[in-house]
Amino acid sequence: MSVLLAFTAATLFSLGTWLLLQRRLTRIVIGIGLIGHGTNILLITSGGGGGIPPVIGKGDKGDFADPLPQALALTAIVITFGVTAFLLAMAYRSWQLTHDDVVADDREDRLIAASRRTDSDVADVEAAERAHITDSSGDEEDQL
């Protein structure tokens, strides 16, 4: 049983990692979800084998399943759920802004990379930058 669970957790981790390395936000969100499930299974497995339900019922001390990992897994599930909801909201916002769900490059990084090139390249990037700044100037006032 625990071999099966270990195998499941490993599969979930590997699939999740693969999805995380993609550039599409939807895949990243699913990847995070899968990794979350993998960790929860791992948590449950860490309590040892099964047994009769804790708290309810009578029996020897050894017959009961360990309740602590179950409580921990519940907490972890709730947290993962909340954060995944936030991620989805952000992916939606990103789609609203760019009509695309690919993670964008960092503008500042590209500027600094460009500064190693010829002067005309820098001028191009700076012109684009200036256009962007005039677009977004005054965003403190008209934001939201």
Partner: peptide
């Protein structure tokens, strides 16, 4: 972190 916790607990 949860992975580390699970392994520590185990």
């Amino acid at each position: 972190f949860i992975t580390a916790l699970a392994l520590l607990y185990a």
